[in-house]
């Protein structure tokens, strides 16, 4: 299985490649990608540098143009596709039907992947994107159980990529407007979830409080691990009980599932975290490289090493890891 790794900066990209990535996905410096954070991502010069380094090491570069083109800025998405095509990157990761259509018509040779933001969870849906735009691969949303992934894989007209590790989206990707309901920005309309401009951290006498546009997301006691102030991971009150009403701040980790995913015919594993530092990228990529290599050597006796799990837990949100929806009981 191909290991597809995140990079929000050139050092992160180098860290990914030096630690064993097969492919690295990056985004441009605007709202055409779903990690549109200040100071992150690549302008055309940096993208060229990234590509040069990747080529010299025999690693692929994918460009994520995975937000929905807003009607007042269509040209930005067009330009992003043009730029990526000029750089002759190895694939584009796209969510929007309009953008897919443009890329497929204009650059028929350029491999297209359907982004997880495309929210496609069935072989029928994939068939649509395959027939209309000739996509070669799709990234599955993190809402399917392992059995459901297997079923889709059996009937899919295209290669499949699944998430292996990273912050966990509990909602079907591309189908969540929680962020824009409370702020004005969402992954679909701006490429961000819980924009930093609306986040405030305040240390009170007893608690560390996180707020999103004045709405209290969580209160942490001293020593309690904190999480990103995303709405799906806050502690809220439902019928007078205060708890993580939607999800706990945990990370997805599927090291355990490598054999099953491989048997199901999954072609690539994606690691999440373009917004994270080079240090994070280096750590998670090296663990996953070791794990995939170890599986390739002796598939029958594969089992994740304690030190791998420890290393991943160390960089995880909430410092815990979970199988997420892959594990049926979670659903």
């Amino acid at each position: 299985m191909e290991l597809v790794c995140p990079a929000g900066s050139l050092p992160a990209l180098k860290a990914a490649i030096d630690n064993g990535a097969d492919a690295v996905y990056i985004g441009f410096k605007d709202d055409t990608n779903a990690r549109h954070f200040s100071g992150l991502n690549f302008n055309d010069r940096k993208a060229q540098k990234a590509l040069d380094y990747a080529r010299s090491q025999g690693v692929k570069i994918f460009v994520a143009i995975n937000t929905y083109a807003q009607s007042n800025g269509w040209e930005r998405w067009q330009r992003a596709v043009d730029l990526a095509a000029d750089l002759s990157v190895d694939a584009l990761i796209i969510a929007d039907m309009g953008v897919l259509n443009y890329a497929a018509q204009r650059y028929p040779q350029l491999p297209l992947h359907l982004s997880v933001q495309g929210s496609c969870t069935s072989a029928e849906g994939l068939r649509f994107y395959y027939r209309e735009f000739g996509i070669r691969r799709a990234v599955l949303p993190r809402v399917l159980s392992l059995d459901q992934v297997k079923t889709v894989a059996k009937q899919s007209p295209v290669d499949l990529e699944v998430f292996g590790f990273g912050s966990l989206c509990i909602m079907a990707e591309g189908r969540c407007h929680l962020s824009s309901y409370v702020t004005d920005q969402s992954p679909n309309n701006s490429g961000v979830c819980s924009p930093a401009k609306d986040v405030r951290w305040t240390q009170t006498e007893d608690h560390l409080e996180s707020r999103l546009n004045t709405i209290l997301i969580d209160r942490y006691q001293a020593g309690e691990t904190a999480g990103y102030p995303t709405l799906c991971k806050g502690r809220f009150a439902v019928e007078a009980n205060v708890f993580h009403a939607l999800e706990e701040p945990v990370s997805l980790n599927t090291l355990d599932l490598i054999p099953q995913l491989s048997a199901a015919g999954i072609k690539a594993i994606k690691l999440e975290g373009r917004q994270r530092s080079p240090a994070y990228v280096a750590q998670i990529v090296s663990v996953w490289r070791s794990a995939l290599d170890s599986f390739a050597r002796v598939p029958e006796s594969f089992s994740p090493k304690v030190e791998w799990i420890q290393k991943l837990a160390n960089v995880s949100e909430g410092s815990q890891t979970t199988l997420g929806a892959y594990h049926r009981a979670w659903q």
């Binding site: 924009p195 986040v199 240390q203 942490y220 240090a279 949100e317 909430g318």
Partner: peptide
Amino acid sequence: RAEDPDSLFFQRRLSIEGDTDLA
């Protein structure tokens, strides 16, 4: 780059006050 800032943040070893976007 021995530690990842987000991890330090989750572990409460770093904190941010004021304009989160700037930080």
